[in-house]
């Protein structure tokens, strides 16, 4: 296990420059054929955001959620989720769609997942400005905690990289895992406190159950950074970092063992 973690870290260190250059190219890839390019990404977000807002408005009027404006509630949860959802849907295909590279030149496959995470981050970096615009616009400027914001940003990227190490490996070798992953991904947003709030859930066991997903920690964290201040308990923080480290270790193990076989199995 330790050897594989060391291998993954050293490949990343060695190829730092390559990861950066490839990520920039990666961030432009999907929108290359369209005329407005990267703006489509933001159009998606705004449309999604608008529709959810409309329904919330129709159902519950211009109410508040957890004592904060529902616009602010939605945007603080939605934007980090959009990033994670891109990582889960597009990023997780990094090795599978890098088949051509792996089978034609000598290339460390293990850096492909990270390249796609960094690429998605570059593509989405402007969307984080939307949180600032909305929350400051609604007068939550005073409750902004820059340190928490940087911390949760860091949490989000660490989680994305660790998770993607595992996902790209299993998805590269098995179509079954990809289908399962896609099914889970479609329902995931409803299991998180993004469009509704957890405080309505009374039973303790279900509250615990809902918090198993580590993305919940990030989503709640962004809300803390912009509005609520430090509200997450230490236990959940420890759980989150435990999951990240665990995923990184499992992901490293899979990548290390599979690197010999990617070219053969795909």
């Amino acid at each position: 296990m330790l050897t594989s973690v060391r291998y993954v870290l050293s490949e990343h260190k060695k190829n730092m420059g390559l990861i950066g250059r490839m990520a920039v190219m990666d961030s432009q890839k999907q929108t290359l054929r369209s005329s407005i390019g990267i703006a489509w990404t933001y159009f998606h977000d705004l449309l999604y955001f608008g529709v959810f807002l409309l329904f919330r408005f129709l159902i519950s009027g211009s109410g508040e959620i957890m004592g904060m404006n529902q616009m602010v509630y939605l945007v603080t949860g939605m934007i980090p989720w959009f990033f994670m959802s891109d990582v889960l849907s597009q990023g997780s295909m990094a090795i599978r769609s890098g088949k051509g590279i792996i089978q034609s030149i000598r290339f460390p496959a293990v850096i492909l997942p990270t390249i796609s995470v960094v690429g998605i981050f570059i593509k989405r970096i402007l969307s984080f400005l939307l949180i600032f615009a909305v929350s400051f616009g609604f007068g939550y400027g005073k409750s902004f905690h820059p340190i928490l914001f940087v911390y949760y940003m860091f949490c989000m990227i660490c989680l994305a990289i660790a998770l993607n190490l595992v996902l790209t490996a299993v998805i590269a070798i098995s179509e079954d895992f990809r289908q399962l992953h896609n099914a889970l991904l479609r329902v995931m947003i409803y299991t998180m406190p993004i469009i509704w709030d957890f405080s309505r859930v009374k039973a303790i066991w279900s509250n615990v159950l809902l918090r198993i997903n580590p993305i919940v920690y990030v989503v709640k964290g962004f809300r803390d950074a912009f509005v609520l201040g430090m509200t997450q308990d230490l236990l959940y923080t420890l759980y989150f970092w435990g999951v990240v480290i665990g995923l990184f270790a499992v992901g490293s193990f899979l990548q290390y063992r599979l690197k010999k076989y990617y070219a053969d199995f795909m």
Partner: peptide, 12 residues
């Protein structure tokens, strides 16, 4: 390596 020559390019 001239193996799988046209692989590894991005179509767009």
């Amino acid at each position: 390596s001239l193996i799988n020559l046209s692989a590894g390019f991005h179509p767009d």
